[in-house]
Design a protein around this nucleic acid. Structure first.
Lengths: 217, 217
DNA sequence: GCGAAAATTATTCAAGCGTATAATAACGGC
DNA sequence: GCCGTTATTATACGCTTGAATAATTTTCGC
């Protein structure tokens, strides 16, 4: 039996590889199926190496969770900021980015679902979740406030909170719906449902948000 | 070492006990922590008994998933049907039931989260999910259609579908938000946000849905 | 190039897993 | 009140898991 060939990689990319392999395994086999050996195989290394880069398997999974969540949030925020000025367009791009791939995507949901069950059990998972949720909600509230200002409205803080809760909920829910049953929806359908719903929720005229908002690609 | 005392139970309640113990363990320790031994301890029996009632542990977990999901859907549907006539009240009660305990509840979410990761991996889970989703969506669409009829509107089928997708998404998302961060929301807040949002989404006057809708308890 | 340090593989270990089987207690028909 | 059947406990088995350790290869300062 010949010994496996060495392949030495930089610390950064090896960690990245291991996290990617972890995510692959979770998406494919669920958290239960993401064993140290399976992950190592997927990453093309031997099991022992994992503990050279992470103190424990748990810690690696936590890193994978962190990366998944920050990746999703970042994607949406960057989509919003990819244009300048116009608050309406930024808000609408934020919503669209959340409801189209790669954010709304069966694999992403599989990952999220695998992780979310840990949030209330493992305090580290809880912390990662809270942190990410706060970032997301703040981004949404900021976009919303800018939009209100742009159209010359200044709702009370209370109403602002309610709007942001509702929109956040709508995005989350449609995200789940779309990711769980991607085959039931047109690529654009969910995003358009969301835009029209948000328009209605904010009391805007039809097209007050979506117009031009989908000329993104 | 004295032998554990026998306690003989009827098949129905023993199965129920085992499922309840499974759910307890999943809620408390996650799916990973719900081992045969842990579940047996929680149910006050020895591990071997599980295989006397279920062909395998997987099958028992599937039964637990089925029960959790049908329980949630049933709770909401029964809340809607607990009143007669008035379609507006029934729709609003349906929404409220979904966004108040025991449906919106950290433990319920823990269970759901633990399970949902299996939906795309285990075909039995997938089947249970699809079945339940269909029941829920159809209940919502029926309530919605009755409500439209009641207020003398007859939207196109396409618009109906869009409305039901959006409302379903809103409910799902607020349900997650409320269950994940129950401490951030007033008991009634989410339900009211939902009612006002649905009013807006359907183009109703404010209070067109919620009025009297919350005099439920 | 040499030798220490680091990276990677290979092997081993104890614990826990789901399951199978054997022993035992309770029940029901007669 | 005995006996077959079934529910339940107890024990054992084989396998997988995460982790620890030992062996081997590479890198790099000098």
């Amino acid at each position: 039996m010949s010994r496996r060939a060495f392949h030495r990689a930089s610390e950064a990319e090896r960690r990245q590889d291991l996290i990617a392999a972890t995510l692959d395994c979770i998406a494919e086999f669920g958290v239960q199926g993401a064993t140290v050996r399976q992950i190592a195989t997927r990453a093309g290394v031997t099991g022992g190496l994992i503990r050279h880069y992470f103190e424990s398997k748990d810690q690696m999974v936590q890193a994978a969770y962190r990366e998944t969540m920050t990746g999703m949030t970042r994607a949406a925020i960057e989509a919003a900021n990819s244009t300048d000025g116009d608050a309406r367009t930024r808000l609408s791009r934020f919503i669209i980015a959340n409801l189209t791939p790669p954010v709304t995507d069966p694999r992403t949901l599989s990952l999220w679902a695998g992780f979310i069950g840990h949030v209330r059990i493992d305090p580290v998972f809880g912390e990662i979740h809270r942190e990410n949720y706060a970032v997301f909600r703040e981004a949404l509230e900021t976009l919303l406030a800018a939009f209100f200002k742009e159209i010359g409205r200044a709702p009370a803080a209370e109403a602002c909170r309610a709007h942001s809760i509702a929109i956040n909920g709508l995005i989350d829910g449609l995200w789940i719906e779309g990711s769980l049953a991607a085959d039931m929806f047109d690529e654009r359908e969910l995003a358009e449902v969301a835009l029209r719903s948000v328009e209605a929720m904010l009391g805007l005229p039809q097209g007050g948000l979506s117009q031009d908002g989908r000329t993104t690609d």
